[in-house]
Each structure stands twice: as structure tokens, then as C-alpha cells.
Design a protein around this nucleic acid. Structure first.
Lengths: 245, 245
DNA sequence: CCGGCATGCGTACAGTGTTCGCATCGAAGG
DNA sequence: CCTTCGATGCGAACACTGTACGCATGCCGG
């Protein structure tokens, strides 16, 4: 409390805090915001992301984010394109190897969808209308793959396999989210859900067997993998019939 | 203002309003709430539904709804099951006609998904884990259909075609929602989006053609129908290979 | 007649996305 | 060197949201 300084012009504690903070972080940038948003979404799910919490994690106020991002929806759009960069699509050297290549591209999509389960929620609300660069190159590579494979209507083939992959991945991700929200492990969650499911299935003869599968409890991950591969094989078989010659 | 009545026990305006209101509506009931919620969702989209607005439309306060519904999530669950009642699955008389029957069941799902675009948002967040009675009978009938068709693994076949249908319908519904939110007709929305899309596709040789399809503007509905039928045919062809004999 | 119980609702709380205007800062220009 | 200026951060505020609590009121069985 030195009485001689000019108190109004430069209040000491403020200056103190400022000089430490500014060189600390690389300030606020669009890229950093999106990166941290993805991290929060992955960690705590979609409903845990709020502008205030995100700002707090970046040592910033909530409203500061709006200097770099127009709206929260735009931020989600950027987040989607951010994770879209993870999906790898192999280039096709041998035309006969298209099945393996498409399988890899599909599995890659599913893998990122399961790594970032919030993606399904966003896709359900906004679809694939996004035009982010990473999504564009993903589409481009898919198109290149299917044309190289020799499909007469590549876009039709792409839509078909993408629809299957999105549908399956979305369903899986939603289930995993539900399980995660319960705080329990998947096996115990299933066990706790079992009685309700069996009661709901009462009177439906064809459904009775669906909820007594022990594999769902012993190794649900492997069961999901197998289910995905089965359906994908079906789709690819159907597509193969449309290859000329 | 008659001074002789007992004013505290029966204040006039209150009695007036009450006697009119009580026989007016069948009061508040779970069924009425769900019905009105679906109506609001259909009319104004998912983000327009709030407990307060829903209460207002039922001549009720917002918190009154909680006497009949535990939480908003539960209300959405009920709404999903409500619209699930619309989907019809034909019974299979002749085993050879399974293709037409499955096609009808798939088209029915898609039709309700497009009639209630908010469904896609909910599915993206919660999946098919719901156990409502209507969803159960839908599953049951699907199972009956695929078993009657002679599939060795009916549940695998169901998961495959359902994944495709969900993926395609979700994508379509999300697109329609985006268009609707713009307030424009689909054709003008596409026209307005075109330059951005073409700029985003710049440098991607295989994508250049995707955004110059005139059919998307002249008759987008027919184009979507055809796209859906194409993919479904692919999936059914793949499944047919797995039928014994 | 009366006591209990289901139903409706007003108030309140914690939290949300977003707007606005002010403070501060680094750089550019006289 | 001083000053202006544009960019950036931020505190306060607004209109909402879902929901918990407690009070009032009506109907129904004893």
C-alpha cells in the first residue's frame, strides 16, 4: 500500500497478473480453441461442452472465444472437420484390391466415430452438409477409390456404403455413450438392463432369444466388430454385382 | 363486486376460469403430453421444444408436466416410441416375396424418419436402446419377416439393413432440416450453396462433377428416392447371396 | 363432514448461448 | 517519443433452458 504511486492508472495486482499470463500461453487462436473443444468432447461428452467451461480451460473468459469463432454451431462444425482428418483412405494401386481398400476406409470411419462418440450426435443434427477441407479430401479419396475400382456410378456406391457405415457407427456410438453415462462397465450395465429388456420382449416370440446371448456379456467388443464386418461384407457383395464384366 | 358473498373462500374470477377450464380439456395426461410434444417437434423442430412452451400449448404451467413425465429425456423417449407406431411391416405369406416385404418395411422407416426429422437427432444421441412397446413390436415383426424368409442369421440381416436405412434416412433428414432452417425452398438453397461447394471442391478432381448435377435442382425428391432404392437393392442383393440353397 | 391424496403451478436456482461496451495492448505513423 | 488505431480479451447483462421445492386446490373414500 504505497501511497505515492498513481493508483488509478496502474493498479498493481492487475499488471502483475497480465505480464505473467500473456507470454504463458500462445494466446487464443482458432486452432487452439478447436483442439481443446475436441479434447473436452472426447473426455466428457457433448453436453459437458459449454462456452464458459471451454473458455476456462483455455485460461480465458467465455466471451473471448467469440473473437475467433462466430457461434457454437460453427465451433462444432470445425470440431467435426478436425476429427475427420484422422480417417485414412488408402490409394488404389491394383484395381482388384478394391474390397480391402474400401474395408479399410470404412473401418477407419467407424474407428473415429467410436473414438469421438459425440460425432454421431452432431451428424444426426446436421448431417454431412459440412464443407470443411478434411471432409472434402475424405470424399475426394473415396471417389478416387471407387472410380479406380471401376464402378459405373461411383457416387451411388459411395452413398450406399457410407450410409451403412454411418448407420452402424451411429448406433454403436449411441449405445456406448449410454453405457458410459451410467458410469458402470458394459457387462454390468447389460446385466442390469436385462430384466427390463426381457420384460419388454415378453410376448414377442422372435425377440426372446435376442436378449439371452451370452457373448454380449463376455466380449461385447468382439461381437460388435464381427457384426460390423458382416454387414459391410453384405454391402460389398451387393456392390460387386454391379461391377462391369 | 357483490359485497354479500364470502370473498376469501370463493373469489369470483378464479371460480369462473376454473369451471370453464376443467371440463374444457381432458386435463393433463401422459398421452396428451406426448401427442402435443410430437406435434410441436414436427412443426418447429427439435430445438423449439421446451417444457414451458409445451405446457403453454396445453393450457398448463411448465412444471405441471413433471407430474406425468419424469424428465425431458423420458418425454423424448416416449415421443420416439409414439412415432414408431407408424411404421408398418408386412407379414410374409410367400417366402419368395421377402424382397418386396423388406423393401416396404425399409421404406416405411424412411418415411417416418422424413416425416419427423427430429427423430434423427434423437437417434444420434440415444440410439435404439429404447424399449418402448411400439419399437419392440417393430423389431419383432422384422425378426418374424427375416426368419420366414429363411435367413440363417436373422439378427445379422436385420442389423445390416437397419444400419443402411438409419444411415441414409438420418443423412436425408439432417439435410432437410438444414434446408428448412434456412427458410428457403430447397432449389434456391442449393443454388445459394453452390458457389461455396464448388470452391470447397476446388482442387479435388473427382468431386468437381458432384456439384454440377442439374437433377439435384430440378427434382431433388425423386433423386433422393432413387438413391435410397439403389442402395437398398445393393444391400438386399448382398443378403440374397446368404440365403441357403 | 372431513382427512388424505393426487394434481396443478409460482417461485427459484443454476446454467446456457450470445450481445454490448469498455479496457487494454502491440504496432504503425507523425 | 508520443499518439492514434485496430485487434483482442472480458465483465455484465439478457433471454432462455430444465428442473426441485413447497404451497394451494380439487376430488374421493371413510
Amino acid at each position: 500500500m504505497p501511497p505515492k504511486a498513481k493508483p488509478a492508472a496502474t493498479p498493481l495486482p492487475s499488471v502483475w497478473a497480465r505480464e505473467q499470463r500473456t507470454p504463458d500461453q500462445p494466446a487464443l487462436s482458432r486452432a487452439a480453441i478447436v483442439r481443446e473443444a475436441v479434447a473436452m468432447l472426447d473426455a466428457d461428452g457433448i453436453e459437458a461442452l459449454s462456452m464458459r467451461k471451454l473458455g476456462a480451460r483455455l485460461n480465458a473468459g467465455a466471451t473471448s472465444l467469440y473473437r475467433h469463432v462466430a457461434t457454437k454451431d460453427e465451433l462444432m462444425e470445425l470440431a467435426v472437420d478436425e476429427v475427420a482428418a484422422e480417417i485414412r483412405v488408402p490409394e488404389l494401386q491394383d484395381g482388384a484390391a478394391w474390397r480391402a481398400a474400401v474395408t479399410e476406409a470404412a473401418a477407419g470411419f467407424r474407428a473415429t466415430a467410436l473414438r469421438h462418440p459425440w460425432l454421431s450426435s452432431v451428424l444426426g443434427q446436421a448431417g454431412l452438409a459440412y464443407l470443411g477441407p478434411n471432409l472434402m479430401t475424405y470424399s475426394e479419396r473415396l471417389a478416387a477409390l471407387f472410380t479406380a475400382a471401376g464402378f459405373p456410378e461411383p457416387s451411388r456406391a459411395i452413398d450406399t456404403v457410407l450410409s451403412y457405415v454411418i448407420g452402424m457407427s451411429t448406433t454403436e456410438a449411441a449405445w456406448l455413450t449410454t453405457v458410459a453415462r451410467s458410469g458402470e462397465t458394459e457387462a454390468t450395465f447389460i446385466a442390469r438392463l436385462m430384466p427390463a429388456a426381457q420384460q419388454a420382449a415378453a410376448g414377442h416370440e422372435h425377440l426372446a432369444g435376442s436378449y439371452t446371448d451370452a457373448a454380449a456379456i463376455t466380449d461385447p467388443v468382439a461381437l460388435r466388430d464381427e457384426k460390423f464386418r458382416y454387414g459391410l461384407a453384405v454391402v460389398l457383395d451387393g456392390l460387386a454385382l454391379r461391377l462391369p464384366k
